[in-house]
Every structure is written in C-alpha cells, then in structure tokens.
Nucleic acid binder design. Sequence first.
DNA 1: TTTAGGG
DNA 2: CCCTAAA
Length: 642
Amino acid sequence: MVLKKRIYDGGFHGLLPPVIPKAPRSLRKRCLRNKSYADGEISGFELLAAVADKLLQEQESESSTSSVGSKGKGPIGIHEEGAKHEPLEVKVDVKVNSVIPDHHDPASGAESELVAQPTNPDPRLKESPHSENDSGSDHASIVTNSGFVKKVNTSLIMEAIEDKPRNMYDVSVGDIRDEIHPVAVEKQSGGLTSVKTYILKDGLKPCVHTGVSNKSYTSADLPYYKDRVRGACLPRDRGNVNINIRDDDEKYFRYNNRNNTRLRAFGSRSRAGYRRMRKIMPSRYWKVARKLNEYELQNGTSDRVKSFYHKRKKICMREWFQADAAVKRRKLFHNSSKNSYIKEASSESMSNLVKFSIKSFKVPELYVEVPETETVGSLKRSVMEAVKAILHGKLHVGVVVQGKKVRDDNRTLQQSGISQKCNLETVGFTLESSLPEVSPFLAREETPSCNVQQWLSRPIIDGCFSSSSSGPPPLATSLDNHLEKNEESTTFAAEGTEVMTQEPMEDSKALVVVPPLDAEVLSVVPFSEKSSKRYEFSQRRTRRPFSVSEVEALVEAVEILGAGRWRDVKMRAFGDANHRTYVDLKDKWKTLVHTASISPQQRRGEPVPQNLLDRVLVAHAYWSQHQTKQPAKNQKPLEAQM
DNA sequence: TTTAGGG
DNA sequence: CCCTAAA
C-alpha cells in the first residue's frame, strides 16, 4: 500500500521529474524485480527498500510538486502558466508498439489510445491479457519515449513494484496506460499545460523517441519541474500551491497518505447499479464533486467498471486500474464481436493518421466547502484533497467532438467524426475520473454526508505519514473500515477480503490507522450530491441515426405490435441492439410519423424509402384507432389489413 | 420499469 | 436524444 500511495503521490506531484530522479535507482531496480516477483513474492529486504524509496520520493516529490498553483485559474487551481511552459509541451510520439508488441491491436490505433485514450479499453488489452505480464522492460521502453512518457514511467514503475508484491497483478500494458493517463493529467494539473500529443496510427507507431530516454527522468522532467517550482515556489510551495500546508513536513506526508487512502477508498468502492451508471453517474458519488464544465464523464467506462466491481469491490487504486483494464478488455471483446461496423471502420481508419495537438485538458470542476472560520490553509488543503481525489482516482481521458462526448470507445475516429478532414479544433480531451462512479458505499447508501465525512476523514487519517510508511500493512484494512461507516466498512472489508484471497493485496492494508486528526478538515462536499444535479456529468449519447433496415424493422414490429408497446417492439426488432432502447424506438416512431407527414423536401438525413413511410402512416393510423395497449388481441388486425 | 410526451 | 411525470 505504501508504495502505491507513494506512487500516486509521486505520480501526482511526483510525476514531475524531480521526484523521480532521486528514487530512480531503487525504483528502477525494483521495477525490474517486480517483474520477477510478479508472482507476488518479495523478500523482506525488498520491502524495506521499497519503503525507504518511498520515503525518499515523497520528500522529493513534495518539494517538486508545486505545479498545482493556488494561482491557477482552473477549478483545481491549475496554473495556466504551466501549460505554456515549454517543458510541458512534450511531443509524445507514443510508439508503444515496439515496447508492447503483443498488446498492439492491429485493428485499432493502439498508439493513439495510449496517449489520448488511455482509459479506453484497448482492443489490444483484450487480446493479450497475459501479455501484460511483461514487466519493467516494457515500461522502461515506454518511458524513454518522451519526457512526458518518462514521467509516466516513473510512476508506473513505482506501481509495478508495489503492486506485484501485493497484488500479484502483473503489470500489464493496459495498466501502464491507465497510469499514464493519470500521470498526464497530473502533469497538466501540475502545470503541464500543454502536451502535444500526436497520435499516430498504423505505420507511424513504430517510431519511438529514444533520445529522451537516456536523459532519464531528471533531464527531461527537471526543466519542467524547475520552471514551475521557480515560478511558483520552492518545494514547500507545493504545499502552497496545492494547498498550502503550514506544516510542511508532516503535512506532506499526510497528503501523500491521504491521497493514498483516498485512492483506496475510491478503489474500494464498487459500482452498484450497473444500469444506473449512466444516469446517476459518478458525479453523484464523487466525494469531491466535480463537474466537467462542458463535458460529462464517460459513462461507458463506468459501466465497465461496474461489472467489474461487483466482483471485486475492494481494490486498491492500482488494482482498480488493472481491473478496469480487464473489464474493458472484456467489454471490448464483446463489442468487437457484436459490432461489425466497428471493425470495418477501424480497418478503414488504419490508413489515415490524425494528429492531435492537445494544449490543455478540460478539468472537472471541483466543489469545495469550507467553513468561514477555517483557515486559508485548511481551504487549500481541502482543495488539494479534491484535486488529489481526482488525480488519484482513476483518470480517464474523454474525447469530445464538437462539444459532444464520444462515449463509445470502440468507435473509430472516423466514426466519431475525427478525421484528417475534420477540424481538430472541435476535438477536445477531458479529464475524467472514474471514481465518482457509483461506489459500493454510495450505492448502498445514498447519504452524501456520510460519504463526505468519510472522504474528509480518510485523507487526514491516512495522512499520518509515519503510520502509513512504517505501519504494518495489515492494519490498513481496518483503517479504511473505521473511517467509513461501519456498514460500509464492513462491506468493504468483506469485499476486500475476497479480493485478497484471490489476489493477495497488501495495499489495502497498507494504510495505517491514524486517529482522524483533522476532523477539522474541511469537508469537501460532493457537488452532485448537494446540488442534486445528477446529470451534470451525463453525456449525451452519440447520435446513431437509424438505418433504413432499422426503420424497416421498427415499422414491421409496430405494424404487428402496435405503437405503444415499445418494450415489446424493442424486444422483437431490436433485442440485440443495446443501443436502441424502447424509448429510442418510440422516439423514432414519432419522428417517422412526422417525417411521413411532411414533404420529402422537408426531410433531412438519410432518406427513408417512401414505401416505409407509407407503412408508417398506415400503421400509425391503424393503431391510433385501435388501442395499442391491448396486448395480443389487436395485434393482427393491422397485418390482416396489410 | 415502461409509457407517453414535451423539450 | 434527453428528461420526466405517471402509471
């Protein structure tokens, strides 16, 4: 656990180069070892070393993490400045291919995904779950690609080390990706304002920038880091920037710990209502309410996650990532089989490269509540918590095209309206957190307050650095539980146990129980909960015009079943079309009737054969006079007429 | 959860 | 397509 925490912190703040530099050595080695330890075996020595490294890193990272500036305009207070820093603009030519041959999915532009859509389940993943085992070597290679990547690598490495011992999970490419995203995000938040990401499809993938690699985290990162630090402040600034912490030392630790804890908390949370996910979305459950200004969270991801969580509710963040990846893979797999169109599209897109220049990410809004009596320092802390919560949480990158979020990860860029031809200006990337998604706890109880409290308390508690770092891993579990409501905690524990059994994870335990010192801590109130704006994050589904064949199927079904029995119509004609709900069919019928009643010149979109429209009119007229709702009796009259 | 409608 | 009131 400790390691994880660290890693996250490092990732968050530490993504910055400085952090890495100091701990690099051990980390690297560990990374390598981790691979070897993939089985989960670790020597005591290793553990000690790991702990030591963490500590070192934390210190460093803290110093380095100043990127998140209080000055920042962004909700989180991200410095825009950072965005402009050259360092930030790291051209990431992600050519993972060489590194991760196995994962690479020919069908999809894996590369691009790595950068742009890390969160999305990569086709590759599904294909080569086992391949993930590749360990450090791969990571290393990835890291080398660019400064940006490097950072990521660092974090990755860290994780890898930790995880393996605990989780037994192998570090998979997918994992890497996931982490990468977060990292990227962090950077941004930290101040990396702009990252130019070039997504290369197809042939381009092979290219890898090795030049940077040699420099090591330090060289590439440092500049960046330095800039920020200088501009903003010294290491301590981190406190300031992030959330000013008056007591630097301890607080740093705290933060770190908190973060870790929090991560866990999130991770532990399972997703309950699978279906609900879409609507309810994460937002509600976010402890730190955040709101994507313009975009919503990706539902799709959450959905995937949900299923996964049902099985494993208690999972450390890292694990989460992995788990998520796994889920995604599965899902992809399914989708792939179902959606032929996707395949087609993908194949087509293969030949076209689309270059993305990402200057900034949309960051979800953070909502923080702090009593007037609280100190500025506490406010900062609260904000920091919120930020951390987001960053620590599983981050996802959302793709927005023309203001619409592209949910379907399986869609090709072309299908999503992203092409060389299109105006890439209309393509945006957002940072999304999966955490907000239904957490087990929340799902059970929708009592925001509890959650909030937990939230607050946890971080703080976890915050105890000493405990976390030195504390016996086993305790962690109890900790979490304590923090949460008993019920929840219990559940949590239970779930965690299960998970544990399957895959020994010390992470969960890693957290040290510390008295909730900071009850004082300002509470970060989940935005959604308070505002009750459930749909803040909801995304509008991508538009999927009905094809003629679909219209025909609809018409036929309505002719037989009547208008009004949409559920039956759905089952009959679109039983296998998950993207067509009965509401959709009802709406479509409505539009069909309207379309049929207007002149052809007034019609838009793909023309519907007149014969179908005629049938629509007939059926509509018929069922208007015959109670649609009558179950099976009236069904055939229409047909008879026909 | 479904229907039915308005937006 | 979304969002909701009703059923």
